[in-house]
């Protein structure tokens, strides 16, 4: 998988989502997603043991 979200990939995603994003905003959307995707694309999923996603608290209110 390429590190950067390519314009072609972005257009494919827009088509799959059934959305309309004007050409003059594609650069902004690409930058927004590319920056956020860098850590995810760099992640070796097998090394991350955690599976629960969000902040959670015990019944008595403590954090865990």
């Amino acid at each position: 998988m390429a590190d950067e979200l390519t314009l072609e990939e972005l257009r494919a995603r827009i088509q799959a989502a059934g959305l309309t994003i004007p050409d003059n905003r594609l650069g902004m959307v690409r930058k927004l997603l590319s920056d956020a995707l860098v850590p995810v694309r760099a992640l070796d999923s097998r090394t991350v043991k955690t599976v629960e996603p969000a902040v959670r608290f015990t019944p008595d209110g403590g954090a865990r």
Partner: peptide, 22 residues
């Protein structure tokens, strides 16, 4: 368009971001 960018995030990417969060 910022909001619509959220419609372009795949399910897998969302889950991986939550795992990174943990």
């Amino acid at each position: 368009e910022r909001m619509m960018a959220g419609g372009l995030v795949t399910g897998s990417e969302y889950v991986q971001a939550q795992r990174i969060r943990a």
